[in-house]
Amino acid sequence: MDATRPTLAVWKFASCDGCQLTLLDCEDELLTLAGEVEIAHFLEASDEVAPGPYDVSLVEGSITTPDDAERIRHVREVSGTLITIGACATAGGVQALRNFADVREFASLVYASPEYVATLDTSTPISAHVRVDFELQGCPIDRRQLLEVLSAFLMGRKPNISQHPVCFECKRRGNVCVMVAHGTPCLGPITHAGCGAICPAYGRGCYGCFGPSPNWSDGRPNTRGLVPWLDMTPDETERVLSTFNVAAFREEDHELRQPDTRGTDDDPPE
């Protein structure tokens, strides 16, 4: 043990493992990182677990079981800085679709003996249970953003994570706007940057996997302003907002059903 190196722990709740895999996907940086920090608790990568407390904890996944609701309190107690990584940990993930359905009916459909399955009625983000020091959005998170956040916390500075919507990255990448040029529905204007505007670069509209972008005057994206431009049926609009960040976009979706109080700057295209 090297007492001078900060310790890093990685924790998993309900999730697909993709965000913690992002750490192992830092192929060029992994061994350097392992020299800078002591990876003290990372079950996906090591069976040696050093006792806490840990300087920095990365938490993947959402809270969906009574045991996990207890376990996250323990993780908070043994963590100096707690950073959530990914849509599950920051917004409940795609499994939060249960929040708007009957979870018992879900269990009876998927499992022949649902009584063996312990589950809560909702899938909730980590911040609904304990204090979170930083949330990194994305389904999955972006490797470069993860390295920036880790570097920042290890250096004791604020992470330089843009709060802009995807459009900014899209312009910087030199993409042609898929919505303006081809009429392809795109959630880029209301979605948090970080992916590098991959979807428009591949000729598809952004599908919102990084969650809502907060960088507008009231701290929320102007979903109401965007929707008429999408040229989608209400059913299609609800579905496109109800995927990997359903609980975060749900607020937007709910607002769409209320009388117009915010207005829009532009008229939709004819």
Binding site: C16, T65, V94, F106, L109, V110
Partner: peptide, 24 residues
């Protein structure tokens, strides 16, 4: 591993959606 109920919430979704949803 906590159950995530993919097969349940795929009902009612469009046939274009499973490639993105089940990837998760």
């Amino acid at each position: 591993e906590p159950p995530r109920f993919f097969e349940a919430f795929l009902r009612g979704r469009s046939y274009t959606e499973p490639p993105d949803i089940t990837a998760r």
